[in-house]
Write a protein that binds this DNA or RNA. Structure first.
Length: 95
DNA sequence: TCTGAGCGC
């Protein structure tokens, strides 16, 4: 499973739309649109979890895909740092 | 209601 960073998303886009869009290029395990925690407004980007194989295809296929009139920016997402011992500094730990 | 960088609690 790989994480995909989706940026330049239209404010009108929903998790369902993103999921369906990525589902066309592979199996979507999970979709999460990030919203501003301060104001509650959508930041315009999100994350999609897909199998590594499908993720690679989706990234290349959906990268630049026009959604809501805006070219989506799809790229491998960084691993969210977790507290507790070492860690930090990002870096995807070998699975 | 509106807005537009860019990696989530």
């Amino acid at each position: 499973m790989s994480k995909i960073y989706v940026g330049n998303l239209p404010f009108s886009a929903d998790e369902t739309a993103v999921r369906d869009l990525f589902a066309q290029h592979g199996t979507v395990d999970s979709v999460a649109l990030i919203m501003d925690r301060d104001t509650g407004r959508p930041r315009g980007f999100g994350f999609v979890e897909m199998p590594r194989a499908d993720a690679a295809r989706a990234i290349q296929s959906l990268n630049g895909h026009d959604m809501g009139g805006r070219p989506l920016k799809v790229n491998e997402a960084q691993d969210k740092p977790r507290g507790g011992g070492g860690g930090g500094g990002g870096g995807q730990r070998r699975w």
